[in-house]
Computed example of a mutant assay.
Amino acid sequence: MPDRRRADARRNYARILAVAEEEVAAHGADASLEQIARTTGVGSATVRRHFPTRRALLEAVSHKRIEALRVRAQDLTGAADSRGALLEWLGDVVAYCASARGLAAALVYDGVAPDPVHDNSCSAMLEEAGDPLLRRAVRDGAVATGVTVADLITLAVGIVLATEHHPDPTAAADRLFGLAVAGLAGQGPAAT
Rank of each mutant, 00 (worst) to 15 (best):
H118P: 07
V47I: 11
Y109T: 09
L33S: 04
L176T: 02
A79M: 12
D30W: 11
A106S: 15
I36P: 00
G178Y: 01
A60N: 11
T40V: 05
I153R: 07
G84S: 11
D110V: 08
S32K: 03
D110G: 09
L69R: 03
A20C: 13
T40H: 03
A172C: 04
T148E: 12
P169I: 05
V181T: 11
L33F: 04
G141I: 01
A18C: 02
S82A: 15
S123Y: 08
A150V: 12
L179H: 07
P167E: 12
P189W: 01
I36E: 00
A37T: 01
M125S: 12
L161W: 00
A29N: 03
L176F: 05
R83C: 06
A95Y: 09
A9N: 09
V117F: 08
G183C: 00
G41W: 10
V117W: 06
A173S: 15
R83V: 04
R4S: 10
G84W: 06
P189G: 08
R65L: 12
A80K: 12
G146N: 00
L76E: 06
A185P: 00
M125F: 01
V94Y: 03
D30G: 15
D110S: 08
L90T: 13
A25G: 14
G141H: 01
E23G: 03
P52W: 05
L126Y: 01
L152F: 07
T148R: 10
R101G: 13
R48V: 02
A56P: 04
C97W: 00
A104S: 12
T163C: 14
S62D: 09
